[in-house]
Design a protein around this nucleic acid. Structure first.
Lengths: 154, 154
DNA sequence: CTCTGTGCAAACACTTTGCAGCTAA
DNA sequence: TTAGCTGCAAAGTGTTTGCACAGAG
């Protein structure tokens, strides 16, 4: 399973790129050389790169691209759900003094974070292939969405 | 201490504070007024505050404290496991172009992020009390620890 | 041809650091 | 007493923004 995720197949890449171009057209975005290059760089790697990393990579085949464009494009990609942010919300760090096991729900509009506890999340064992390779120190379950009061505001 | 909270809840806070002081002594940290004030402010709220928010709150009862101290203290608290970071790693945003459902393991040393897929995590239903109140758009399961190559380096 | 996208530079928000004086142990 | 802590100011890091020009549709 680790392997399958790491070896993203070439044939699949082509289709992804076609789908992406369609997605751009559907959402009214222009298919620019830069946008395509950033998207390709992102799906060609399994290392969950930062904007800086994508920038360095794209620069090799497109030397005039700027870091700003990469930043803007990555943000756009996540807005049209062609990419996800796996680390760093871009907002300030936030802390929790509650040491008991629990999970969080975060409202993407008002940024409110709510604690909850749902035992089944806690009960799921970390898979063996992960436990064998890595020392797991922490397990986080995180939900995102729109909270009740933000929904009413629509 | 306000005396309106004279029951078990307050006793719990009291115990937490005692435990915290012990934790400081055990880890060789001094129990300073600032450190205590920051810790209290953190456990008195359920809103997962940022450093800035904690700062504003502590300032009311301790006007000379600086934001730097709050930042430093919150970092220290998470280092001694008296608090957790629930949002914002402080590092750069990182992106993922893999849209299939999957989970992540992140090595806290080398920052490498590895994809895996463990169906049981996917199968857990979001609890009803959350689904009823909030519109859930995304579910994230995230493991943190030490990866194989970093363990060997010890 | 039009209007979005890009590159540049400057602005920005948050966090960290160097240092001198302070304080808990 | 003294090692560690704090407050201040300055630097650092990553991201966003305003603007004029370029290029996709």
């Amino acid at each position: 399973m680790l392997n399958r995720c790491n070896n993203r197949k070439k044939t699949g890449q082509k289709k992804k790129i076609d789908d992406f171009q369609k997605r751009c057209r559907d959402t009214g975005l222009k298919v620019t050389t830069q946008r395509l290059a950033v998207y390709k760089a992102l799906i060609e790697t399994a290392e969950h790169p930062s904007a800086e990393t994508v920038f360095r990579r794209v620069k090799q085949i497109f030397p005039t691209i700027s870091l700003d464009t990469v930043n803007r494009t990555l943000r756009t990609l996540s807005e049209i759900d062609s990419a996800f942010i796996v680390e760093g919300s871009g907002e300030a760090r936030r802390f929790d003094g509650n040491l008991h096991p629990h999970q969080h729900f975060k409202c993407v509009r008002c940024k409110r974070i709510v604690d909850f506890y749902h035992q089944p999340f806690d009960n799921v064992e970390v898979p063996l292939n992960i436990r064998r390779k890595f020392k797991v120190l922490r397990k986080t379950v995180y939900l995102e969405g729109i909270c009740d009061s933000c929904r009413e505001k629509n």
